[in-house]
């Protein structure tokens, strides 16, 4: 059997991440979380691309060293080319193209959203085709029917804010720091999810689209009406707000995913993206899947947020089908699936 070794690069937002996959087996996955962002309450584009420039070479070296792979052994370089922040994407894309060109091996452009779906295919067991895939992160909320390898149908999308963005913005209203998702998750554990009734937009409608800006606004009105803005919110009330907000987002995500799976007649459902690390989403999706006789797949935490492993996984699959990209391929900030 021919040995296929793929280097995967991911720089679409605030993570510089590099992974090595050999014959479908992950050998290394280095994620350099850029804690520099925490001070500023959000992803800062310039800082992001500067940090990527500083980190890309050391992170590649570390991923290669950990995998015990020499660069002469690489078969191809796979890179996330979009969607993402332009300045950040370009660092990975330009590095990846130069690296592939220098080694005389193929360059493989990977769609970041497609890669999130394949984060469920890195370790066994993997979903069977067709499957219903929910990708939820700071920048995206998408329900995708994966009909066959690389055959997608977008079943639903957000009409306004991404689910993770709602988490980040509500966390900011509550002065909880960045990233908002994990903070809200922590506080919510001590709170009552039924304490405050926030809306569940489109939850009962027949389509599979999402809207999260209304939930964000409801939290804002709740804080305003109860004179809680820019004040110290009592610990228990803060926990209740977090739990109630989180449960309204999770309810919508779970209901829509289950219904989409039923309507399209698929048995396997998969969740990916940064918000799939949320503990309530994991628990509720698991319960709902079991209740409805569906098989649920959620990746390990390290494959939830942006990571090089999922890029390398798609790269490996494309390599086997000889789907390569020209060396003049470039980054596309709002690339669609």
């Amino acid at each position: 059997m021919q040995t296929v070794t793929i280097l995967g690069l991911e720089t679409s937002c605030d993570e510089t991440s590099v992974a090595v996959i050999r014959n479908g087996k992950l050998l290394s996955n280095i994620i350099s979380s850029q804690i520099v962002h925490e001070q500023y309450g959000g992803v800062v584009p310039e800082l992001a691309s500067r940090a990527h420039q500083k980190l890309i070479v050391p992170v590649v070296n570390e991923a290669m060293a950990k995998a015990e792979v020499r660069k002469e052994e690489l078969s191809a370089v796979a890179v996330a080319v979009g969607p993402g922040l332009m300045g950040s994407l370009l660092v990975g894309v330009n590095f990846g193209k130069a690296f592939a060109y220098g080694l005389g091996i193929p360059f493989i452009a990977v769609n970041h959203m497609e890669a999130h779906i394949y984060s469920n295919f890195i370790d066994d067991p993997v979903p069977q085709f067709p499957s219903m895939n929910l990708t939820v992160s700071g920048g995206h909320t998408q329900l995708v029917l994966l009909k066959d390898e690389f055959t997608y149908e977008i079943v639903g999308e957000t009409k306004d804010d991404a689910a993770g963005e709602a988490f980040d913005k509500v966390a900011k209203m509550l002065n909880l720091g960045y990233p908002g998702g994990p903070q809200i998750d922590i506080y919510a554990k001590k709170g009552n999810p039924n304490a405050i009734k926030f809306p569940r937009p489109y939850a009962t409608e027949n389509d599979f689209h999402f809207s999260f800006s209304g939930i964000k606004t409801s939290v804002l009105y709740y804080l305003r009406d109860n004179k809680l803005r820019d004040t110290e919110i009592p610990e228990q009330l803060l926990a209740d707000i977090c739990a109630s907000f989180q449960s309204s987002v999770v309810d919508v995500l779970v209901q829509k995913t289950i219904r989409a799976a039923q309507q399209y007649g698929v048995r396997d459902i998969a969740v990916a993206g940064g918000v799939s690390a949320n503990s309530r989403l994991r628990d509720e999706m698991k319960k709902a899947a079991e209740k409805n006789g569906l098989q649920l797949f959620i990746p390990k935490f390290e494959y939830c947020t942006d990571n090089g492993a999922m890029i390398a996984e798609v790269g490996y699959r494309k390599y086997q089908r000889s789907i390569f990209s020209p060396i003049n391929a470039t980054a596309i900030a709002n690339l669609e699936l």
Partner: peptide, 13 residues
């Protein structure tokens, strides 16, 4: 096309 919040990408074309 659907116009969504550009918070993530800073600018959408």
């Amino acid at each position: 096309e659907n116009v969504t919040s550009p918070t993530f990408t800073i600018v959408n074309e």
